[in-house]
Design a protein around this nucleic acid. Sequence first.
DNA 1: CGCTCATTTGATCTATTTCAAGTTGTGTGG
DNA 2: CCACACAACTTGAAATAGATCAAATGAGCG
Lengths: 239, 239
Amino acid sequence: MTNLFVEKLRGYSPLDEEDVAGLLALTARPRLVKTRHDLIREGDRPGPVFVIMEGWACRYKVLPSGTRQVLAFLMPGDACDLHIGLLAEMDHSIQTITPAQVVTIDRVDMDRLMAQRPAVARAMYIAQLVDEGTMRAWITSMGRRTSIERVAHLMCELYLRARDIAITGEQSLALPLSQVLLADALGMTSVHINRVLKELRVAGAMTLNRGSLEVSDPAKLVRIAGFDDGYLHRRSRTA
Amino acid sequence: MTNLFVEKLRGYSPLDEEDVAGLLALTARPRLVKTRHDLIREGDRPGPVFVIMEGWACRYKVLPSGTRQVLAFLMPGDACDLHIGLLAEMDHSIQTITPAQVVTIDRVDMDRLMAQRPAVARAMYIAQLVDEGTMRAWITSMGRRTSIERVAHLMCELYLRARDIAITGEQSLALPLSQVLLADALGMTSVHINRVLKELRVAGAMTLNRGSLEVSDPAKLVRIAGFDDGYLHRRSRTA
DNA sequence: CGCTCATTTGATCTATTTCAAGTTGTGTGG
DNA sequence: CCACACAACTTGAAATAGATCAAATGAGCG
């Protein structure tokens, strides 16, 4: 099993053997977390940095009305905020979507590694900038894209992110997101998500079925979404 | 004229004289930028960090359709991303909304100050976390709040942020945002913004007129917005 | 004064939500 | 292998928030 955290960071900055060794040492002991378990909750005092090694999770907020907004999807290799420990309380929660292998890294250890290994620090900072860019893309989606564009855009994003850590098939991806969850992420109703998915299927762009995304016509999907991968900052990649 | 960048950072971490002296040295030479001028554009190679010392600006993206999404409002004391220089290109643009005094800080100088003055580094990191929290709040607004809640929520946010740098009046704030701009920020039409503003006015919660926000009934505004200031992480503040 | 730009109002239209039933799929125990 | 329970998905009809189109009003400015 390759270490997808390393894989992801390697995409942002070249890492030498010692960089990798340092990262492997910090991520050696993941623990298994079951589905729908809150890793941390809004209002909690943040602790160590954690990294999803396997499985999926999401950041979310619950509103007074009880509705929920998903703020980000975390896939293998993704981490929570680097400096999260500086805050008095979390302003959102993080929950697993599938069973997941999660590693927690002590702030001190992380700081030491970053001080000793500039390439690791660089990659971590870039990862954070990409997370921010992703949030901006989400704001843009919510504010100015139609529902079908929004769905298509999210699928493009997830597919590319997954490709960068090599967990995709030819034109497919294991995507364990229910329609309710997608609705909570995209500011829609699950009912409407369902109709939009059908529309995308009929259009021959993509199919989402039983936890699996099939991108039948990538060009069409990108066109529908108006997708521009700039915000993922993948430029230096070779793949 | 107090230095509002220092004022803002002081809210996140106590700063001693030398911390402040270092910050003052880096922000001594602002330049005047006129209204509606792009400080940096999507696709540009990022340069030095810059800080708005006076006036307002916004981050935004333009979609293929020509519509625009405002991603954040920058008020005096606000800075662009700390590590922005690590990226190959900007994924969004930043434009002034009013004439503004803007300072650019060389990456090297900033890094040196942060290395020498841990309190400054701490405050800068917290500022970045607050920016992220703010983006999450915007995503939540766009996804799950009605238009009136969205407008009210944004006004609450701006008022509190402005209060932290002491540029507010009793229950008022100089807010140079046109209805078109607000529409671009909140994913609405300017026509609809107009109606919502009227509704808030009639409800006796707030009035936005000629660049001035009057919060006639703060409690009511907060109630309408369902506002919780947690994401601004102001807990340590005394004010 | 006459121009321009921002705001306001009205009338119509449409995307999306809401509510309410079904249908399909999946795992479990008999 | 079947029956049952439970979750996820699908579809239709009615209601509504917000967009769009069009036009009027008002303020600031050379």
